[in-house]
Amino acid sequence: MITNSELFELLAMSSMLMDYNWTEILKRKELFRETFAGFDPNTVGKMGEKEIMEIASNKAIMLTESRVRCIIDNAKCIVQASFA
């Protein structure tokens, strides 16, 4: 059975295909895990404007603000679905 964190990680990584190819995504996998709290949807879903701007401005990550917001919104949806 897949956990919420594993589901969220797969969803987030797949959404990054709009900006990267799989090779680039996998090269940055650990950086993404650090940035998004190990893809814990409970933690990521609580990220606010400060965290969004910090992530979006991080040159090593190179994700647009809209992509960061999408990842955080997906975390919120996973959390909400797990309580439904």
Rank of each mutant, 00 (worst) to 15 (best):
N21L: 08
N74I: 01
A37S: 14
N74H: 11
A81C: 02
T23R: 14
F83I: 05
K27Q: 14
A84D: 06
V68M: 02
I78S: 04
M62V: 09
F39R: 03
N21R: 07
S66Q: 12
W22Y: 13
K76I: 10
C70V: 05
L26V: 13
Y20T: 01
R33M: 10
E34S: 08
K50E: 13
M13N: 00
F39Q: 01
L17N: 13
S82L: 00
K59L: 10
C77L: 15
A60L: 13
I52P: 02
N58R: 04
L26P: 00
K29E: 09
E49M: 12
A84I: 05
I72C: 03
I2R: 13
F36Y: 07
Q80L: 13
F8K: 01
T3K: 02
N74T: 06
M62G: 14
E6Y: 06
K50R: 13
F8T: 03
M47N: 04
A84S: 11
Y20A: 03
I61G: 04
S5G: 02
W22C: 12
R28C: 05
R69T: 01
I72V: 07
E9N: 08
F32T: 02
R67D: 01
L31V: 09
R33F: 01
M62H: 12
I2V: 10
E51W: 07
M62D: 15
L17M: 15
E24W: 03
I25K: 06
I2D: 11
D73F: 09
D19M: 09
N4I: 04
E49K: 14
M13R: 08
E30P: 06
V68R: 02
F8H: 03
A81S: 09
F83W: 01
D73H: 07
E30Q: 14
K76T: 07
V44I: 10
R69M: 07
A81V: 05
L31P: 00
S57D: 14
A37C: 12
R28E: 08
M13D: 02
E30F: 11
K46A: 13
G38D: 04
M62Q: 14
Y20E: 04
F32D: 00
N58F: 00
S5F: 01
D40F: 07
M16L: 15
W22S: 15
A60R: 14
T23F: 08
G45V: 06
N74P: 06
M47T: 04
V79H: 01
L26Y: 15
A84F: 06
A81I: 05
L63T: 03
D73R: 11
K76N: 11
N42C: 14
